[in-house]
């Protein structure tokens, strides 16, 4: 089993929204960044992977097992942070410490306590007194304390300040030191992913528009900035998308080393995930 998670032709129909043929894989030892606008289908995809929604077509395999038929076995070895769903807020971290060892056979109380201290999360205060950042940290700590093999994290860094984001990302990188593990991490804040993600899967309006190694994307893709006259000379096969601005054209090209050899252009910039996301969504072909 080389892939820890495989999603194949996932389709889910709602009245006003649909997931269409979602497919991607996460190999062992890797961090997959799952990016897209709010409402693009990230959470729905994650809910299908986790069996929170059950009526869909397609195949989802976790640890090589069908996710709907083997959920008990799978759930014991995954750790989850959901966008908006956790223990009731009248509970305390100490309450969680009491119930979780009876839910996960592999729960590591010492590890949980260590992270609570590290993040200065109070034992006996109700979650409702916590700031949004503290809540997220508690959710992350709760998700990793049973030594899962796959972390599925829906927007785990939202609401965190930069310092806390750094702390949390350190935890993820520590987690991935074990090459049998993997992480699926959704975010609309791409800077987190720009550093640590190995792969990027990009979803828009319910469809995957890109799933690739992040280094391939960032090292090879580029943005050409040029005049209309220059743009008109480009063959359609040499670029992916373009945006027409007031003073210039921005053109996304898949190979920033080869492109200048073919066309005499002045400016070709390296790309960030944010720019990639914007130009893929707003751009025309």
């Amino acid at each position: 089993m080389e892939n820890i998670l495989e999603v194949k032709n996932l389709n889910k129909q709602y009245n006003d929204f649909a997931l269409q043929d979602i497919s991607f894989n996460i190999p062992k030892g890797m961090i997959m960044g799952f990016i897209g606008e709010n409402g693009a289908g990230k959470t729905t995809t994650i809910k299908a992977i986790l069996n929170i929604i059950k009526k869909y077509t397609g195949e989802i395999k976790i640890f090589g097992l069908d996710n709907r038929q083997n959920s008990a076995q799978i759930n014991a070895e995954i750790g989850v942070v959901l966008d908006d769903s956790f223990f009731p807020e009248i509970m305390t971290p100490a309450d969680i410490a009491k119930s979780m060892p009876k839910i996960y056979p592999t729960w590591d109380s010492a590890l949980y306590q260590k992270y609570l201290q590290e993040f200065s999360l109070p034992q006996n205060k109700q979650i409702k007194t916590f700031s949004k950042g503290m809540r997220k940290k508690l959710e992350i700590v709760t998700a990793i304390a049973h030594h899962p093999k796959l972390l599925i994290l829906d927007e785990p860094t939202s609401g965190l300040d930069p310092v806390a984001r750094r702390e949390v990302i350190d935890i993820f990188q520590n987690f991935i030191q074990n090459e049998e593990c993997a992480i699926l991490l959704s975010s609309h804040i791409t800077t987190d992913l720009e550093h640590i993600a190995d792969y990027i899967t990009f979803i828009n309006k319910g469809k995957i528009i890109l799933s690739s190694s992040k280094d391939d994307l960032l090292n090879n893709y580029g943005i050409v900035k040029c005049t209309e006259k220059e743009f008109n000379q480009f063959a359609k096969t040499d670029y992916l998308k373009y945006v027409k601005n007031k003073y210039d054209y921005e053109v996304l090209v898949p190979n920033k080393k080869e492109f200048p050899k073919k066309y005499p252009i002045k400016v070709i910039d390296k790309i960030t995930l944010d720019e990639l996301m914007i130009i893929m969504i707003k751009g025309e072909k």
């Binding site: 890797m30 990302i169 990188q173 992040k214």
Partner: peptide, 17 residues
């Protein structure tokens, strides 16, 4: 490759490359 990736805050694939 994993510990180097962690300490440089980059991805595993990057250090592997």
């Amino acid at each position: 490759i994993r510990s180097l990736a962690k300490d440089l805050r980059c991805s595993v694939i990057t250090t592997k490359n």
